[in-house]
Design a protein around this nucleic acid. Structure first.
Lengths: 122, 122
DNA sequence: CAGGATCCTAATCGATACTG
DNA sequence: CAGTATCGATTAGGATCCTG
């Protein structure tokens, strides 16, 4: 027989919140969408301009998800032609620190590690 | 013609770090793996016990990715039978605050949306 | 025990229409 | 302008089997 299996020194993660949040942030472009909404409400087309390579389908899907999670709210504008504005809810604002934390460590990831396969710069 | 397209109030995100880091954390189970490693070095089998539903293939793949990114280091133990221990590098430690930030906001997210397929509680 | 090799399925994304 | 619908290509992930 081999080594004894040690008991983990950390408590199990609150994996439901963790998984829940990662499911939210994990979708393609989601962090970017939230990033841009953090500057104030934006319309659909504006977001498409902010994130050039996103497809309408995905942007639409992400915004809908975020609404369902209560992170984003949609306001229909009474203009002609009608348009809609998306903004972060108070709950949504709380995601910002997490995104900043991710960006912060992300910027350190770049310089280290094995640069065997050059990371594609976006 | 419709509304004028406003200029974004936020600068473009450092999208390379953001994308880079999300690619890292986005993989299934990755945050959990890092969570458990944050308690100190763990062996392969121990991690499998920590995260019961993970498959060996995925755990292996994640650990390899994390090594390549310089976040995890592998130490071969001179035991019989030989086993290996994985631990966070200093760089890896820096991911922990981000994960905590994610967990924190995750616990506030309401588990809403379509409960068509019940979110499996882990 | 630690992990690689295969096969397969389900989810996801992009591109391209098309509607109100 | 603000989306929705459909399709095809890609891919991540699970299961299983196999080796050192």
């Amino acid at each position: 027989m081999g080594l004894p299996v040690r008991k983990s020194k950390v408590a199990p993660p609150p994996s439901c919140p963790l998984t829940l949040c990662m499911k939210l942030l994990g979708g393609a472009w989601t962090p970017n969408v939230i990033w841009y909404l953090s500057g104030g409400p934006r319309r659909f087309g504006e977001l498409r301009g902010d994130i050039p390579r996103i497809s309408a389908r995905v942007l639409s899907a992400r915004l809908k998800e975020l609404q369902e999670k209560g992170v984003v709210e949609r306001t229909l504008l009474d203009t002609s032609p009608p348009s809609a504005e998306y903004g972060l809810t108070e709950l949504g604002q709380e995601l910002i620190p997490a995104i900043h934390a991710i960006v912060r460590v992300g910027s350190k990831l770049r310089d280290s590690g094995s640069p065997k396969r050059a990371a594609r710069v976006t």
